[in-house]
Write a protein that binds this DNA or RNA. Structure first.
Lengths: 336, 336
DNA sequence: CTGTTAGCGCTTTCAA
DNA sequence: TTGAAAGCGCTAACAG
């Protein structure tokens, strides 16, 4: 037979409500009583029944991680952080793919929240950039936390100063003597694409280098789009001496394009990416890139969400650190 | 205010219990009554409250996907299939990393099942191969479904005939004239490593080729282990003319080792992998490999689990199809 | 600081 | 074939 709160109460010589108070960290229990209850809970190995708790408490102790077609590596890292945070706060987590482009995706999210009675949501890019979604959630009064959202004002979650990170990466290239630096943009749905592009432009400006639209090509964060972009850029009459791709997958595509054309990296052209995914160390030469603390970002975003669930005025937007990874794919500008 | 089962009952002019019967597909309701109830449910947009349902019904309508440190690509594919199946059966899913090697992992799984009152589990490799875990779950009477387990007898889930798939892959190499074929083994914790090794040996035997232990090197499914294995194999005095790595990541490592040594693939050495992960198309030349229907495997494993939850004698072990992907990394044996 | 009582929304049991 | 009543295990509201 399962141990119930009543058993704990009897054993500890208190009322059910007192046990409940202790378990939920509510105030108004003497320290000795609290200790005695906790002892009994441990002795009986009591675990509250989540359904009963949810039904009576009118909340689910469940959050959902919403995503749309992200990179598996990225999502797994985020997930790991989210799971850690949920575990330590005795919350459950469900995952929900959300078709960002499907016409009724707002209603699908609504239905999901209603049906599962979710207490809160964690949004990953590019969902974090859907004004329609964020507005709808606000309107419904649902707590949510954003990972790397385009607009941070009044939101809770985590961000990374990508603009600044790109600035450092570009400074590295410029210090190596590069003046014709190209950029492969990311998928237009992602705020990250804009920040990385903006970081690229400001870095050029700061260094007094001219912005040349011919050196900027659209990609969509995939290897293939990087390959196509690389072919295009490296076929230019005035070839760039360095290429900054908005993520590692595209940078790998660019490096493949270079090798197709018989160009050596970094002797003939330097290449760098962003994200520090496993591929950055599996290609040759290893890729210069920027590392995000992705797992921690999931963790922190979740903690902020749980804070906000407890107290609507609590969660905040946390800035996370990044770290340049200087490796062998970038080198001095070719002579001549 | 939320619509409750009572509202539906009143509106439809029946009792709560009848609505409940209809919603749970229980027998003993006249067809007209059933139709009327369903109509009302739709009209009122009624969604049963999962907590109340679980509390009263003494089950959670929740399954968990258990994993330990798998490849992110693989897990994401499985996850997608699992989510699909859960969604269409109105089940929830939670994900749980499980430290396979941690000494108390059995108790951790127990605690998880108890605390969340899970109705069933989906196990991914290598958890599927832990006899201790499977025994414990049997003993506790918890339903579970296995993806690619080492032992299939009496279990439910999905498998793939990897032995046969490797046989076809090897036949392809042998048809190209290769006689010195090496093998890079997978991580010893995974049943897949054994099947792929066994497939390798039977294929050699079938072709009348000698099994040479010097041509078999241990790996652990990672790029780096493939790189190390490749260096070792390609430094052999009598170099193999083809290398079958037990997965794509290791095959990519082998190809890098070849290029370090100035060897060309497939002119000097043929390489093939297993799994058809994205990397197989991102390396050059593209990798010959075997495709598993991973997403479908997650889907089918989940459906079998849900069957078993409903009726303990229901779930079965389903054999899934595979498909050879012949690409450019394999070619005729070098002359001489 | 602590306890009592009345539900939460559903399913189960048993009766009609 | 259908319904009424009694909980499931917990928390909220209120009382002491």
């Amino acid at each position: 037979m399962r141990v119930r709160i009543e058993d704990v109460a009897n054993q500890a010589g208190v009322s059910m409500k007192t046990v409940s108070r202790v378990l939920n960290n509510e105030p108004g229990v003497r320290e000795v009583t609290r200790a005695r209850v906790l002892e009994t809970v441990a002795a009986l190995n009591y675990r509250p029944d989540p359904s009963a708790r949810s039904l009576a408490g009118n909340r689910s102790y469940l959050v959902a991680l919403l995503y749309d077609n992200p990179s598996p590596n990225y999502l797994m890292e985020i997930l790991t952080g989210v799971v850690e945070a949920c575990e330590s706060h005795h919350y459950g987590m469900v995952m929900q793919p959300v078709g960002y482009h499907s016409p009724d995706f707002l209603d699908a999210v609504d239905a999901l929240v209603m049906a599962s009675r979710l207490d809160g949501l964690i949004l990953t890019p590019p969902l974090t950039d859907s004004a329609a979604l964020l507005d709808r959630l606000d309107q419904r009064g649902i707590a949510f936390s954003c990972i790397s959202p385009k607009h941070r004002e009044g939101r809770i979650g985590v961000t990374l100063d990508e603009h600044e990170a790109v600035g450092e990466l570009m400074a590295h290239l410029i210090a190596l003597g590069h003046q014709r630096i190209a950029h492969v943009r990311g998928h237009p749905d992602h705020g990250a694409s804009e920040w990385r592009m903006a970081g690229y432009r400001s870095a050029l400006r700061r260094a007094g280098l001219r912005y040349d639209p011919a050196l900027v090509v659209d990609g969509e964060f995939s290897f293939d789009s990087g390959l196509a972009a690389g072919r295009q850029l490296l076929a230019l009459a005035e070839r760039p001496t360095a290429i900054f791709a908005a993520n590692d997958d595209m940078a790998a595509g660019v490096m493949r394009a270079a090798s197709e054309l018989g160009l050596r990296v970094p002797r003939d052209v330097s290449v760098c990416g962003f994200d520090n995914t496993p591929i950055s160390q599996q290609i040759f030469p290893a890729l210069t890139t920027v590392q995000q603390p992705t797992r921690d970002m999931g963790q922190v975003a979740t903690v902020q969400l749980l804070n906000a669930i407890r107290d609507r005025s609590a969660g905040r937007m946390v800035r996370m650190p990044y770290a340049l990874q200087l490796r062998q794919s970038t080198g001095p500008v070719p002579a001549g």
